[in-house]
């Protein structure tokens, strides 16, 4: 099949690398994801390290409806070179009173951890995040205080969240800056 030990004479042959190994399989797949990305109205994307560094980007999500309407929520995406074998690591950079997002910005969304599959894409994650703001889920809380208020007094929850978004507000002992 291959005369391994006759490689010696052939070494001189010019072997310019035509594949760029500095580009990981994760980056190749991100090119596909980016070419298929459809952002909902009001949602924007930016690349802090430049548009040729697709593995790090930020999404600014603006729910058009629901409890979180009019807020702008900033997410930081770190895509591993092993993407889509591994999901991106996402943090919510906006401090938000939400049953499924804790005060450190950790997000409890199934497709980001236990239910991640390589067929999912950046598009599916953004849909997932949008869904989380339209339909916060008090059943499996990451922020227990928020979950309890939403379950027991939805009207109070909604007005507190809107107050925080519009003007900034204290909810319990935590201050939430405005994020219009």
């Amino acid at each position: 099949m291959i005369k391994l030990f006759s490689v010696k004479e052939k070494q001189k042959k010019d072997a310019a690398a035509i594949n760029n190994p500095k580009q990981s399989a994760g980056e190749l797949r991100m090119q596909k994801d980016m070419s298929e990305l459809n952002l909902a109205k009001g949602t924007t994307i930016s690349f802090p390290d430049g548009k040729d560094k697709l593995l790090h980007f930020e999404i600014f999500l603006k729910p058009e409806d629901g409890i979180y309407k009019a807020g702008t929520f900033h997410f930081d995406f770190q895509v591993p070179t092993s993407y889509p074998h591994e999901p991106p690591k996402i943090k919510c950079k906006t401090k938000v009173f939400h049953p499924n997002i804790d005060l450190d910005g950790n997000i409890c969304l199934n497709i980001l951890r236990e239910d991640w599959k390589p067929v999912l894409s950046i598009n599916s994650i953004i849909y997932g995040l949008q869904f989380l703001f339209l339909d916060p889920n008090p059943e499996d809380p990451l922020n227990k205080e928020a979950a309890e208020m939403l379950a027991n007094n939805k009207a109070k929850f909604e007005s507190q969240v809107q107050a925080a978004i519009q003007r900034g507000a204290y909810i319990g002992s935590n201050h939430f800056p405005p994020c219009r």
Partner: peptide, 11 residues
């Protein structure tokens, strides 16, 4: 194997 964050945090 990964566990849901909310399970880790609350239950």
């Amino acid at each position: 194997t990964k566990f849901p964050l909310c399970t880790l945090a609350e239950t």
